[in-house]
Amino acid sequence: MELTTVWFALIAVLWVGYFTLEGFDFGVGMLLPVLARDDTERRVLYNTIGPVWDGNEVWLLVAGGATFAAFPNWYATLFSGFYLPLLLILLALIVRNLAFEYRHKRDSDAWRRGWDTALIVGSFVPALLWGVAFANLVAGVPIDRHQNYTGSLFTLLNPFGLLGGVVTLLLFVTHGAMFTALKTDGDIRHRARALAVRTGVVAAVAAVAFLAWTQLRTGTAGSAVVFVVAALALLAALAAAAAGREGWAFTGTFVTIGLAVVGLFLALFPDVMPSSISVAYSLTTSNASATPYTLTVMTWVAVIFTPLVLLYQAWSYWVFRRRIAVHHIPAAA
């Protein structure tokens, strides 16, 4: 197997890690005004993702860095063409992350409400725009023979792209509700589980429509199989949630999101950024890649350090595995 194919697969794995882990982060943030009835319950939700959110975002940093090093032409065209959506995502992530650090710094209801709003908006914007970006990436965008993006922001806001954004938004909300039901106890746990079933039904309808549309446009036999299994995993997750099996329910949404990302990358391969102007102008794993020497060095680095990162993150989740309830939250200082 060529190293370009290996690194395309590794980048796909990094995005799987980011969306499956950061996805429930976004979901919990968006559900803050829905699930929490008072400040103590809001603090419960903050504490469910407080120990892990920053580690989850590392997957995004590594995915961006790996794309820059392994496929520099892909990185250049993607970040110049999708500049405004990616800038909005970056700003939303910055504001969102500040909410974790600054919400408790002042004893003021207005102060806390402001940072709660930052968390909600900072979770909503990336959840929507990542779906829009990936849908357009798979469907193809106007790229000329010089590998330059020739469209605008409104080019990306097409029906297929917007449906992709709605799907990621709904899946992350459902994923976040499943995680909340898994990590909390008491009334908030039961409300989260019930909400996960309701939002999951809507997410399932939207996801099936989007994945079927993707398959008809650019799909392969491999992506078709993966999409079907992803849909079945989501249905199994909803059944598990309805039965009160929160661990299996969360596993189901985790698998659903992961397989959906895998299917999108299978539908994309061997392109990394197809051109809607001409197939000849598309960026592929061959014409967008770095030199073989660069890919060889990167491969050895990945072989050495990736297991260490996975072990550390697994250990952190194990340490913070216990459920959180209202009675665990101390009185505000």
Rank of each mutant, 00 (worst) to 15 (best):
A240D: 01
A237Q: 00
T180V: 15
L137Q: 15
R245S: 05
F154A: 13
G164Y: 01
S152G: 12
G247S: 10
L162G: 12
P142Q: 14
A206S: 07
V229F: 00
R198Y: 07
G165H: 13
L238V: 03
D185Y: 10
A236P: 07
F210P: 03
L238R: 03
A240Y: 05
G244I: 10
L162T: 09
N158G: 10
G114I: 07
G222R: 00
R191M: 01
A127G: 08
R189E: 15
G114K: 04
T155A: 03
G122W: 09
S223I: 09
L234I: 02
L170S: 00
L211V: 11
T155H: 01
A118T: 08
H146I: 03
G164I: 07
G140Y: 12
T174V: 09
A135H: 02
G244C: 08
T168R: 00
R217A: 12
A209R: 04
N136Y: 09
D185E: 14
H190W: 02
A230P: 06
P126V: 08
S223H: 05
P159E: 08
A181I: 10
T168M: 07
L232W: 06
R112K: 15
V167E: 10
T180Y: 12
G122V: 09
A209T: 08
L129G: 11
T180F: 10
S223V: 05
T218Q: 12
G186V: 06
T150C: 02
N136G: 05
A209H: 02
F210D: 05
K183T: 09
R112H: 14
N158F: 01
W213T: 10
D187H: 08
L182I: 04
A237D: 00
L238H: 09
L216Y: 09
T174H: 09
L235N: 04
G164V: 02
L162V: 15
L211E: 10
F124D: 00
G122Y: 06
R145N: 15
R193E: 15
A233S: 14
V173E: 02
A239F: 11
L171S: 07
W213C: 05
D185K: 13
D144T: 01
L128Y: 13
A221W: 05
N148L: 03
A135Y: 00
T174G: 04
T199V: 13
R217E: 13
A237V: 01
A177K: 06
A212D: 08
V201W: 06
R112W: 06
I120H: 06
L153W: 01
A236L: 07
T150K: 01
G131M: 08
V166F: 13
L238K: 01
T251M: 07
I188S: 01
T180N: 06
V225N: 02
A237F: 00
V205T: 00
T174Q: 09
N158T: 13
